[in-house]
Design a protein around this nucleic acid. Structure first.
Lengths: 335, 335
DNA sequence: TCAAGATGCTAATTCGAATTATTACAGGGT
DNA sequence: ACCCTGTAATAATTCGAATTAGCATCTTGA
């Protein structure tokens, strides 16, 4: 197989030294470096002819930066079961990477152990890239702590609690978004709420539940939290508005209610909080909010650029947009 | 920022040389390498205490391999408009890359010129990877020729004509697939066929048309080729079976026929040849064949591995699977 | 007791590119 | 002839780990 070209090869062809090639390549004119125009032209011509590109590995070894940004996901990126979830983030990431003139490295080599990938295994390749975007609902806390401890440049998509230090992230402002939904519902007369979903574990779940609790407290209305949706139980408790963390749970509630001959939103309002770990029907028109996934991807790459250039620790929550839908209505005047 | 530990540091702490640390780390026992058990233990203890991990960059520099496979597409990968097309290929690519223990590099830095990316522009980063998979309906012929000329390890997804030499590729066997459709149709009594579509330009189009022509010739039946579908014109010509290159064209024909009060496949059989450059409705149940996209992605990565290891030029066409559908039926006995 | 062989480790080199220090050589002034 | 200055290029070193050749030191056996 044709061996890969090195600067030494280019140098030989152009009749100069390897150092000269490097200087020409990097367009160095500072620090008393001078290259005669004709020499420069000769070297550039050889480079053009051969299509030579500096070995990123060697480059990275010497200094920092090879214009490669890593993307780490805890599951495979492409399988269509995951596509709906990852896709919008990746769109934003790709878009901004193109703007930044960087290539994207997908860490597919990280072998899955017990179904989950780990960043730090026997042979972590994370440092191949200049920096890294982390994607996934929940991220291993040990991995996160090690990233922070080793000062590896990275940005998490999704807010993360401290892990031995602040974790740079671009998240969605679930607290504000959930509060907004409660506000709207209260304005429509609702006084008894239920939050259906985990509400714990991943930061995104915790944030939603926190927003819910803040909002019901602020309005002085009733709000309960249950892990799973039991329609009868909710109705018995006199609840008129349900906030379902998972989209599929929200959809299931709407269908169950209608099967009982109830009207949504006439008898019960159902709101969804956008979590999508399971596929859900999309023809129900659930009221809720849109997670700015694409924008989060874009901002994450921008933030990573800042980390790389200034060593900062950006943390930002992006606003979610209200989605009108058809499942929120005024509370029915009750007997 | 705490500087990263090196083997030299570990060596100092354990009172041995850097070489010894390397030998212990790689568990080398071959080629007359011997390390006393207690020395080994001492080094391992220091490694354990410090949490040292070998710098992958330095490691790759030495190995001449960076275990990075490139993926080049002429359009952005992730935008959802393209998702249906690229997705299955990428699934296969990712799957096999994981098996091979390689990471995937998406060439997002290749700026688009006139809406199309080019592999070889000012500053091609194609050589960042060990090898490269090319994806896209049509690939710039100059790019292709240069890849061949420079002996850059790559594999095209989709058959390609020679470009200054044979082009390594994993394609779909469109000729066989189209012949099969004609065979089935002839068996059902059809004698007058039309091929609707480009039939030229990209290799994939040419292969389909070639299969069509071979089949009608073999059966001694009538077969015409038109670029665009005019339903009336087809019916006037007494055609009873249409093969539409584009799925969307096939779907349009079915809808147009039914709008005229005709039955498909009662009055006209419509077959599709799987090209999907435009979105098409998927609820029509067109008869045709399935392009093994995922498998092609997998095989392409395998083939690339072979190219890298043995410098071969693999060329392979994978079989397409017949899809029953509802738009092919026996020719109606005509007055 | 001394060569032969086994054992345990290290010095030195390699990979490819970036950078610094240094050399080589021209022409100008005295 | 000599020094100085500017210009143009190169030699040598660096990064971190892997590898090979080779140097000590210690056992054996005759």
């Amino acid at each position: 197989m044709a061996k890969r070209l090195t600067q030494q090869d280019i140098a030989r062809m152009a009749g100069v030294s390897q150092a000269t090639v490097s200087l020409v390549l990097n367009n160095r004119t500072d620090g008393g470096v001078r290259i005669a125009p004709e020499t420069r032209a000769r070297v550039l011509e050889v480079i053009r002819r051969t299509g030579y590109v500096a070995n990123p590995i060697a480059r990275r070894l010497h200094d920092q930066r090879n214009r490669i940004l890593g993307v780490f996901t805890y599951e495979a990126v492409f399988p269509s079961t995951r596509a709906d979830f990852y896709q919008p983030f990746l769109e934003g990431i790709e878009e901004q990477a193109e703007v930044a003139g960087c290539d994207l490295l997908l860490f597919t080599s990280a072998k899955a152990t017990e179904g989950k990938r780990r960043i730090f295994s026997d042979d972590s390749r994370i440092r191949l890239a200049d920096g890294c975007v982390l994607l996934g609902r929940s991220i291993d806390r040990d991995d996160l702590a090690q990233l922070v401890a080793e000062a590896i440049p990275f940005v998490s998509i999704g807010r993360r609690d401290d892990a031995g230090g602040p974790v740079p992230h671009i998240g969605a402002d679930y607290r504000a978004a959930v509060r907004d939904l409660v506000d709207r519902s209260v304005a429509l007369g609702h006084r008894r709420f239920a939050y259906v979903g985990a509400g714990t574990g991943a930061e995104s779940s915790a944030d939603r539940l926190r927003g819910f609790k803040q909002a019901v407290a602020a309005h002085g209305v009733e709000g309960t939290h249950v892990q799973f949706a039991g329609l009868g139980q909710l109705l018995d408790a006199g609840i008129t508005a349900v906030l379902a963390e998972e989209v599929s749970d929200g959809a299931a509630l709407v269908l169950a209610a209608r099967q009982r001959g109830l009207s949504v939103p006439g008898d019960l309002s159902v709101l969804t909080l956008g979590a999508a770990t399971r596929p859900a029907p999309d023809d129900i028109g659930l009221t809720g909010f849109r997670i700015p996934r694409r924008e989060m991807g874009r901002r994450a790459v921008q933030a990573l650029t800042e980390v790389l250039e200034h060593g900062t620790t950006p943390q930002e929550l992006l606003a979610c947009e209200f989605v009108e839908g058809t499942t929120l209505g005024p509370r029915r005047a009750q007997g």
